[in-house]
Nucleic acid binder design. Structure first.
Lengths: 229, 229
DNA sequence: TTGTGAAATTTGATATATCACATCTCAGAT
DNA sequence: ATCTGAGATGTGATATATCAAATTTCACAA
C-alpha cells in the first residue's frame, strides 16, 4: 500500500535561511526597485523596528549589502545607499564579463548528455516566445541561463553572478512582455545555445557578452528613464 | 604665518575602520595564505576570544567573508572554509574578466593629461625591473594597476576587483623576485599601457586579460604546488 | 543677521545574555 | 555487534544593554 521508503522532499533550504537572509532580500529588493534615493541613509534601528526584528540580523544583512556594493558604510556615522544609474550600468558590464566567462567554460566543459537538454530548452523557448505568457518566458529564461551555469561547473563565478542580479522582478516581467524584445532575446539565446552545443568557446563567450549587454541596456532604459518622468 | 585655511589631510579612513574590518582582514589573510584547511569549520566564539573581541564584530566579518565567497554558512550549524585550488582558479578567471573590462574603459576614457603619467610609470617599471628590489616592483605594480583603475573611473568594477584579491602578500614578493617573471611582467604591462595610451580598447582589454590569466597561473603554481610537497 | 560652540540627541559599534537547532555520546534494545 | 534515540553539549541566531562618536539644535555673542 505504501512504498517501503517514502522519499520526503527536503524542505527548501532557503525557507529556513533565517532572519539575516530575509532582511537582506527585503532591503536588496527595495534598493533595486528604487525605493531609496541614492545617497539616502539607512537607519539600523528603524529597519529593525519596521521588520520586527532586533538590530543584530539587520547589521549582518547590511554587511551583506555592503559586500554586494549596493550600500556603503561611513564609519561611525551611517550606512548610505550606493545605487544609481551609473552603478547599475557598471553592474551590467560586470555581469557581461562574468557571464560570458561562464559561457566559455560551458562550451569547453559541456558533457554530451547535456547537449540535448540545452537543445530542448531552446525549442521550448522558441515556442514560448510565440505563444506563452511573460511569466513562462521568464521561467524558461532562468532555466536556460541556469543550465549554462550548471554545465560550466563554475562555483565562484556563479556566486558572483547571483550577487550581481540587478534585475527587479517587476521590470523583468514588463520586458518579457514586449514582442520585439522577446524576439531579440530568442535570437540571442539561440546563438548562445548553439555555440555552447558546438563547443565553440569563442563564439559562446562573444554571444553571451553581447546578449547581456544588450538586454542590460533595455533594462536600464525601462527602469531609469521611467523614473525621470 | 599660517595659511588662512590649513588643509589637514583627513586621517586614513581605514585606520579607524573599526574591529569589524580588522577581523575581516585578519581572517581573509589567514584563509588566502592557507592557514585553514578547505572544509574546516570556523568557530565564532573561538575567533572572538583569540582576537580579544566580542562575537558581534566577528559575525559581521564572517558575513563579509561569506560575500567574498571565501566562506560558506551552513544555517544553524557553522561557517565552513570554502577556499581551495579550484576556487582560486575561478577567482583568477573572474579577476581577468573584470580587470580586462576596466582596461577597456580606461582606454575609452583616459584623459590627455593622464597619458604622460601612465607613460612615466612604465618607464619607472622598466628601470625597476632591471635594478630594483621586489618590494619596489610590487609598489610600482600596484601604482600601474591603480592608475589604470583610476582613469577608468569605474567604481563598482573596482570594488569587485578589490574583493577578488587572491594574492597573499608573501607570495607576491616571491614572484616578483624571479627574473623571468619580472621580464614577462614588464612586457605585458608595457603592452597594456601602450594600448590604453593609444586608446585602443580592444587591445587593452585583450592584453589585460592575457596578463592577469598568465600571472594568475604563476601564482597558483607557486602557492598550491608548493603546498603539495 | 550670522557665526560659534556647547549641550542634547541620534546612531552605529561593541559587548553580553539567552535561545534554539545541530551534533555528539552512550546506554539500552534488538 | 549494531542500531536507535534520549539526553548532554556545542554553536550559531537573536535580542538587549551600553558606549562613544557623529550630527543636530539652539542659545548667545559679535
Amino acid at each position: 500500500m505504501f512504498p517501503a521508503e517514502a522519499t520526503l522532499a527536503p524542505l527548501d533550504a532557503m525557507a529556513v535561511a533565517g532572519l539575516r537572509e530575509h532582511v537582506h532580500r527585503a532591503l536588496r529588493q527595495a534598493l533595486l526597485s528604487g525605493s531609496f534615493a541614492p545617497g539616502a541613509r539607512l537607519n539600523e534601528r528603524a529597519i529593525a523596528e519596521q521588520l520586527g526584528v532586533s538590530t543584530t540580523p539587520v547589521k549582518e544583512a547590511l554587511r551583506l549589502l555592503e559586500a554586494d556594493g549596493l550600500v556603503r558604510t561611513k564609519p561611525r556615522s551611517g550606512v548610505i545607499v550606493n545605487f544609481d544609474f551609473a552603478w547599475a550600468e557598471e553592474m551590467i558590464l560586470a555581469r557581461a564579463a562574468i557571464e560570458s566567462t561562464i559561457a566559455r567554460l560551458a562550451a569547453q566543459r559541456i558533457a554530451p548528455e547535456d547537449k540535448p537538454v540545452l537543445a530542448q530548452i531552446l525549442t521550448d523557448m522558441a515556442q514560448a516566445t510565440a505563444e506563452s505568457s511573460a511569466d513562462d518566458l521568464v521561467r524558461l529564461n532562468e532555466a536556460f541561463h541556469g543550465h549554462i551555469r550548471s554545465v560550466a561547473r563554475a562555483n565562484y563565478l556563479r556566486l558572483l553572478n547571483d550577487r550581481q542580479d540587478v534585475y527587479d522582478s517587476g521590470a523583468r516581467r514588463v520586458i518579457h512582455s514586449d514582442p520585439a524584445e522577446r524576439q531579440r532575446g530568442l535570437e540571442e539565446h539561440t546563438a548562445i545555445g548553439r555555440a555552447v552545443i558546438a563547443q565553440d568557446a569563442d563564439s559562446a563567450e562573444a554571444a553571451m557578452k553581447a546578449h547581456v549587454l544588450r538586454a542590460g541596456e533595455s533594462y536600464l532604459d525601462l527602469v531609469f528613464r521611467k523614473n525621470k518622468d
